[in-house]
Amino acid sequence: MIFSHPEPPSRKLRILPVFMPFAGCKSRCVYCSQTVQTGTAESQLKNIYIFLQQALEDAEDNAGYEVAFYGGTFTAIPFEWQKRFVALASEFALSGKVIGVRCSTRPDAVNSEQLRELKELGLKTVELGVQSYNNKVLSISKRDYTQESIVSACNAVRKNSLELGIQLLPGLPGMDKKIFLDDVKKTCALSPAVVRLYPCLVFKNTILASWYTRGEFAPWELNDTVEALGSGLLMLWQDGIRVIRIGVAQEDGLTDSLVAGPFHPAIGNMVRSEALRCFLVEKMETLSRPFSRLLLPRRYQGELWGYKGAYKKFWGERGLSPSTVVSWNLPIFQMD
């Protein structure tokens, strides 16, 4: 049996991140780990604009950056500022310094008419912080929108021929594995170009931290998280959707403010290994006789055996061992 890895072809991006802490945010979600602000002061937006302008002027020609506005609700800041930021980034397209502009925002802060104008100025991708489609989960987490708002926002992004990104937050209060996998199915139905998976963590000075302290919230265990995300990742891959992030980035100070939750510096590798395990088990079940050998593309050697060899026993019980798994340079798998 010959087959390929289910992950869609990746597209390497060179991102120039522009962080806009709480820009446009009108409320505080239960997991938010910083002090809430109502919108963003004019002076702060000016400072961010100056930072971006300087960064682009200093960049090399043909750097090929995608300028990405993160950390707030981009489409909820004053529209004139939205246009100024996108237009500024697009000014550097002729020199090759910028090849696209992306932003992150909330589903209930999407305006189709404004998206059309932003696209004409150079906006390419809109990532929506969906988190979940389950209305009960959204309500508990104080997201203040519904599944209907999410679908409407996704349709508005695609209607304006913009690339759609969706961010999911498995492990939110009130969520179990079944709800998360249902969220993945709903995501597949909306056909985004990219997805990010951020397991819910508990940080200091959050509503979630107070619930955790009082015993009113229990984050998912790491093993349960890896299992759930592995299944979800495989579903997304098999639907042709690229997953461009698994887990939060390990920024300075992150572990100091972390109270609880399924954080691990190698969680991306662990989830990919689980997805590969599920995928290979599916292939094995199609065989009508015991298999004797697996020809494995070299790049997946580590993922097969799992983080620190976590799956060696599992595969050994199914006849796979270092002597029956052969690494090769071809990009396809072969199972005998």
Rank of each mutant, 00 (worst) to 15 (best):
Y198S: 04
V130F: 01
L128Y: 11
K204H: 04
P199R: 05
G171K: 11
C188H: 05
A193R: 12
D144S: 15
P192C: 03
S191K: 08
E163V: 08
L164T: 06
I207L: 14
F180R: 05
L190Q: 00
T206I: 06
V194F: 15
L201H: 00
V137M: 07
P192H: 02
V194Y: 14
W211G: 00
P170T: 06
W211R: 01
V151T: 09
G165S: 12
G165D: 10
S139K: 15
Q167V: 06
A153G: 04
A193E: 08
I140F: 11
A193D: 04
V184A: 08
T206D: 04
Q167P: 05
N205K: 05
L138Q: 12
E148H: 12
I150Q: 04
I150S: 04
R158A: 13
K159G: 11
I150F: 06
K185G: 06
P192W: 02
S141K: 11
I140M: 09
V157E: 13
K185L: 07
Y145S: 07
L201Y: 02
Y133F: 13
N135K: 01
Q131H: 01
L138V: 10
K142L: 14
A189W: 03
M175G: 09
V195P: 02
W211H: 00
C188I: 13
P173M: 02
Q147S: 13
S132T: 05
V202C: 04
M175C: 12
T206M: 02
S152F: 11
N135E: 07
S191G: 00
D182A: 07
I140E: 12
E163Q: 13
R143F: 06
R158W: 11
A209W: 00
L208A: 06
C188T: 09
V195A: 04
N205E: 04
L190F: 01
L169Y: 12
N205R: 02
G171M: 09
A209G: 04
Q131S: 03
I207D: 14
N205V: 02
D182R: 07
V194E: 14
D176S: 03
K204V: 01
S149T: 15
Q167K: 09
K204C: 01
A189P: 01
E148A: 15
P170D: 05
L128R: 13
V184K: 08
G171R: 10
V195S: 03
L197M: 09
S191I: 00
S161E: 15
A209D: 00
T146S: 14
